[in-house]
Design a protein around this nucleic acid. Structure first.
Length: 229
DNA sequence: GCATTAACCACAG
DNA sequence: CTGTGGTTAATGC
């Protein structure tokens, strides 16, 4: 962790809300206990089943959180910057309970877990921000869970496309970062069903696909599909 | 029964 | 890796 000459926590412009609450001396401590690493697309950031190590903070890129189930791998969520990942599994267990993989070139700031824990213990504002982030995340996860459980595939896929456009890329035109198979893993379906469903969306003029470039032509209709299935 | 949905399988670019 | 088609099991009129 000694290759941080180019990075300074104090002058960092993409601090998390939690780190924003830290004072000068705390930032100094942080600065002595972090490391930045870059991951290429499809590189594993941490793997389910291995020993937990450092808290990860996503600075750039896009990451999938996924977990092996009884039958297949499932994508639990997609994470865009700026966001901590791994807090529940690192503070909650000795082994990673899920995996994180870069799905675009990604840079990650790793923070020593003991230092992170110490900051929570000693700085209530810092801890509060972390808890707030975890809470908001859980609420979103509940929302997604219930939608996934009660909608059929057209609705689930429409949700996923709207999520990518609205929340991840903030554009109706975007480069699909997931393969068909991963899309299936993401919306609790199979690659074949995803293909079929995308074809029917295309046929109905809701979307356009050119290679990896997706265009949402009729968002209103997608929202309708999302609601009615 | 009959229609619909979606997973599973196999084969082809 | 992706698209397609046939088959099949579950579910709902």
């Amino acid at each position: 962790m000694n290759q941080n000459e180019n990075y300074s926590c104090e002058t960092c412009t993409i601090k998390s809300c939690a780190v924003e609450t830290l004072g000068f001396s705390e930032l100094q401590i942080l600065e002595r206990n972090f490391g930045v690493r870059h991951f290429k697309k499809n590189e594993t950031i941490f793997q389910q089943g291995s020993l937990t190590s450092n808290i990860a903070y996503i600075k750039h890129g896009l990451v999938k959180i996924h977990k092996k189930g009884p039958v297949k791998d499932q994508i639990l969520k997609l994470i865009k910057p700026l966001c901590f990942i791994g807090i529940p599994t690192i503070l909650g267990d000795r082994l990673y309970q899920y995996s994180a993989t870069a799905i675009e070139n990604t840079s990650v700031c790793f923070i020593d877990t003991d230092v992170f824990r110490k900051l929570i213990l000693e700085n209530g504002k810092f801890g509060n921000e972390i808890i707030k982030e975890l809470c908001q995340d859980e609420l979103l996860f509940f929302e997604r869970s219930i939608n996934q459980m009660q909608k059929q595939i057209h609705g689930r896929l429409a949700d996923a496309l709207l999520f990518l456009a609205n929340d991840i890329f903030q554009s109706e035109v975007f480069i699909m970062p997931l393969s068909r198979s991963e899309l299936g893993d993401f919306i609790h379906s199979t690659r074949e069903s995803v293909t079929r469903c995308l074809t029917s969306f295309k046929k109905d003029g809701l979307i356009e696909i050119n290679g990896k470039q997706f265009t949402l032509l009729d968002k209103a209709a997608l929202i309708r599909v999302s609601k009615t299935g």
